[in-house]
Write a protein that binds this DNA or RNA. Structure first.
Lengths: 240, 240
DNA sequence: GCATTCTGAAGTGTACACACTTTCACGGAG
DNA sequence: CTCCGTGAAAGTGTGTACACTTCAGAATGC
């Protein structure tokens, strides 16, 4: 064992391959794009971004190509990669599609979820509710998403989960602002519980209608939230 | 003008940049993956594929990364890119999601489509029906998809269209086999017309129910079609 | 004979090189 | 003053090089 240089000698390792750079880089850029850390329509400088992330342009470009398909980045040939535009109609479109998928979500969950999973869902949300004073909008948005994704997962349809996650990433910015509204915040807690109750009762139609009420409200407020969102992006976090 | 070498001197051009390789390569590999020209779970050799397509590995890898997000290719770190598995449960999942999105499709179309677009839709499908004798399963599948995509487009929701197209690419293989069934073929023509009629009458509920019948049937037959699909992939096109 | 280790080839992951395109500032002509 | 070339710098698109990983099969030890 003494003489076998298993991985590396103690000596200088010149750059032993970063191991899975693309996935790290992908996650990092995704996070930035989701949070609009690039301004809408801003060109993304590959060299600069690569330097920031400590890798070469190759994994950066591979990650960006993934994000193009996800709809978080756009690509203009011979010009480069750009941050997605802040497109109000597109966001409305995503909310519409999301509503349809969330409907499927509760339908499947009402039919297929085990009692245990439904009980866990209620426990989870009661836990969030109990801690709500300690949570900022960021964390609460995350819990909100988790609630919906759990329901989707209970339906046993992994593709549904994937698509909802992808849509959530693209509208998270708006939803986080919505959730800052104290009124909306309160109603969200009750609406989630109503959905969970309907699932527990295996009342598919009621679950659909609760979900529909829950999602439906937000479309109306979305425009206001988007306005605020635009202001945040361009004016920084100064104005509360 | 005489002295300005605008693009290239007449002299040998060593390889003047293939211009938009990634998009060409992406489309090519996508087509191959959709048609299962790679066997399920088969590792995709990058050098070989690059040579076949006449480019280097760089654009090939960028295209493959896009296809991973689309769900047509999987990536195992340090092993390489693989053809997606032939997963019956996943295909069922996709059919379920598709049904939910097609429902949204007709709902939106019934509300928002112009009379002209609806009339064009009927003309389009009557035209297909008239030519049906001259069409093979491949072409008919394409027209079938176009019918559904037109409805989605009429609803004015581009994201819905995108997602349906993405799902269609992943289940096209199964649907093409379904359409080969002469019985199914006949019913499809009538069902499409019934949907179009309901849209023309602006009868949203009837449109939903027609669409639901139309899609619902296929889930039941999907398993049989998948069996046949597996045989095709592994035994070639010999056995009809 | 069987398990284990070694070894080389094949292939992926990433950095880098270089040609081409775009962009922008500058300067001259109208 | 505006408008159009012009040229250089910046930046993208793709080919290539090379280190590392994996895998299969031979060689070795028991």
């Amino acid at each position: 064992m003494a003489g076998t240089p298993r991985k590396k000698p103690i000596k200088s390792a010149p750059a032993p391959r970063a191991a899975d750079s693309v996935n790290r880089v992908y996650a990092a850029i995704q996070r930035m794009a989701v949070n609009f850390e690039f301004r809408p329509e801003q060109r993304i400088n590959e060299v600069e971004l690569a330097a920031t992330l400590g890798v070469s342009r190759t994994p950066v470009r591979e990650a960006l190509n993934r994000l193009v398909i996800e709809g978080l980045i756009t690509l203009v040939p011979n010009k480069g990669f750009y941050c997605r535009p802040f497109d109000a109609e597109q966001i409305i479109s995503l909310f519409e599609v999301r509503a349809a998928l969330e409907r499927l979500s509760v339908e499947l969950a009402a039919e297929r979820a085990s009692d245990v999973r439904i009980a866990e869902l209620m426990d989870f949300w009661n836990g969030v509710r109990a801690n709500r004073a300690a949570m900022d909008a960021e964390e609460l948005t995350s819990r909100d998403e988790e609630f919906h994704i759990r329901i989707a997962a209970m339906g046993g349809n992994p593709e549904l989960v994937r698509m909802l996650e992808s849509i959530n990433a693209r509208i998270r910015f708006v939803r986080r602002i919505e959730i800052e509204n104290p009124l909306r915040r309160t109603t969200t807690f009750d609406e989630h519980l109503a959905i969970a109750e309907a699932l527990k009762a295996r009342d598919r139609d009621r679950a659909v209608s609760c979900m529909s009420d829950h999602i439906g409200i937000s479309v109306a407020d979305a425009v206001a939230a988007m306005k605020e969102g635009l202001a945040r992006i361009y004016m920084g976090r100064i104005a509360s």
